[in-house]
Design a protein around this nucleic acid. Structure first.
Lengths: 347, 347
DNA sequence: CTGAAAGCGCTTACAG
DNA sequence: CTGAAAGCGCTTACAG
């Protein structure tokens, strides 16, 4: 197959160690010799064999830490699957991945977890951050003082020295929903926006994207809300019922977050299934069923798996090959699904 | 890190070769000994290190052949990128991939390419087949007589001994389009279907899926056509103009294949941009632009990359690890995109 | 600055 | 049926 380091060594009349030093800029080599070896390697079309490399490097194994918040949510459980896939792959390549799960969101716990990771001597950290000053300061300290690169995922903290972010572009997600709702309603009528928490930045980005784009492209649509249901079905139901009372001729509902079942119960109760157009988010819980039953017209989702997988692999590629990520923000695909594009073998 | 074969050998008081024979059922070992070793390995939680395995196996390298048809089309060029990714990965794991490109579709050339692959002693073939008797017979002969597994991709030939198929479910794709068109038109009006070739099975599946689902779920919609434009813009334009003449109050167009620009010219000519709802296929050519310009409302697409990547990897996993694919038909995701979910950095 | 050697975890002829 | 040894392609102390 490929050219090996041994062949180059023979062609150059030096030892394999010398070739290694030349090709990987390890110093301790006469510059002219290094130059000559590199030229020979180029000419012979040398491509390092990752296998040999990895096997040899597995002696000083690369350890990567992962810190998960909100680990109890269905979304994070999906993300965790992606992390585990990455673990398997990193393991195969001779590295190690340490995962620390935190239930709910908690700055204190995050900082403690980071400290723990440092004690374990991880060489990089992938984490779900929190938009709090002390967390951000800690991230910067890890990067600058300890030289431990940090990749954020799912939520971002832009004003830090984190290497990059992997996750959804919330504003764009809201715009996509606006495009769908616009077409579903023929660009006119009344559409309610129901969100989860006003304090959650990724949810409010969706609301902003939605409202802005509706205003821009479908000025014939009047927006009701946003109202907040705290991702609870009971609350979502009450809100929806309330809206129906105020606005009996409602044409559509955009739901940024959980509470689907409550909303659908209210729709069913009002006898408006299929008639009130609904766009919701995420491929979790009973959402596919609700789509099949005709309550939800479109689901917008993100690839949770890749939000776990990619951050770990980005760090591994950095630490193993010195490959830096291409961009500071790696936005995941925004999937649009209708009842015909539900993946096989899913709930 | 993990438990190694050497540790098991020490624990069992045998040589590493013996452990290998026990764990990989290579025979030439006393059954009791094999059993004992397997028990010990289990207990110690042994997981074979793929790296060591691959590096060692790279001596008798695994060669995989790929046969591409219609290599000149934009779609196949995307597929080819996936193939090249797989090549790189297989290469890294000590294997080799041979790619044979055929312009257009041609049974004779396919059979010749298969023969060539056999001469090259490939251990598996991934190919775009052709629904012709002699091609199918040849596939069966390769599988049964030569014991060379065959994976089909992009198009399938069900009644053969091929290991599995990777590609789109055309009928489902048509149904997804029907769901979109139904919502775009409010479930009523007149919708034209324009396809590429009546002889192309994957295109006719789309037509069938579309028409059946419209009839079932949106009985208020009347279907015009299908007409065939041979994927030519000129022809597509004429057809569309013809339809406008016959059906001035047309509400939508479903285009199963290329000819988008021709159709859009006709729409523009009639001053009906945005008004006639359009659903088209594939993320190629000017399709994203046409969507941004408001001609196309939804694009349905397939992940071309994975249709090249996966078949090669399926064969590699089979030949390298003895892992068989999970299903005989591996359907790729059906993506729905609107103007807000166009991936970054794409034309 | 350079080389010889050992080692990463596995597989595979070769002896016996 | 079993073991000792060589080898896959690379990296890395250790000498010099």
């Amino acid at each position: 197959m490929g050219v090996t380091i041994r062949q180059i060594a023979e062609a150059a009349g030096v030892s394999r160690g010398t070739v290694d030093r030349a090709l990987n800029n390890r110093g301790r080599i006469r510059p002219e010799v290094a130059e000559r070896i590199r030229a020979i390697a180029d000419e012979m079309g040398y491509k390092p064999n990752q296998l040999g490399r990895a096997l040899s490097m597995s002696r000083n194994n690369i350890k990567i830490g992962v810190i998960l918040q909100g680990a109890e949510t269905p979304f994070m459980k999906e993300v965790l699957k992606g992390i585990q896939e990455a673990c398997a792959e990193v393991d195969n390549l001779g590295g190690t991945v340490l995962v620390h799960k935190i239930e709910h969101q908690n700055a204190e716990d995050v900082i403690l977890a980071m400290e723990k990771m440092r004690m374990e001597e991880v060489r990089g950290i992938a984490m779900v951050p929190l938009d709090e000053e002390r967390v951000k300061r800690e991230i910067d300290r890890f990067v600058e003082e300890f030289r431990i690169p940090v990749v954020t995922f799912t939520s971002d903290v832009e004003d830090t020295k984190r290497l990059c972010f992997v996750g959804q572009n919330g504003v764009q997600c809201g715009r996509a929903a606006a495009g769908l709702m616009g077409e579903l309603t023929g660009g006119k009528g009344k559409v309610a926006v129901i969100s989860g928490y006003s304090t959650n930045t990724s949810l409010s980005s969706r609301v902003v994207g939605f409202c802005e784009e509706i205003a821009r492209k479908y000025p014939g649509i009047e927006i009701i809300g946003p109202e907040y249901c705290f991702e609870e079905n009971g609350r979502a139901r009450e809100i929806t019922e309330g809206i129906f009372k105020e606005v009996p001729d409602l044409d559509g509902i955009y739901l940024t977050s959980h509470g689907e079942e409550g909303v659908c119960e209210a729709i069913a109760g009002a006898g408006k299934a299929g008639q009130v157009k609904m766009v919701a988010n995420d491929f979790m819980g009973r959402n596919y069923e609700l789509m099949r039953e005709g309550f939800i017209h479109f689901l917008i989702g993100q690839d949770a798996r890749i939000q776990g997988y990619e951050p770990v692999m980005i760090l591994f590629r950095l630490l193993f090959n010195g490959e830096a990520p291409e961009r500071a923000k790696i936005f995941t695909e925004i999937y649009i699904r209708n009842e015909y594009t539900i993946p096989e073998g899913r709930h």
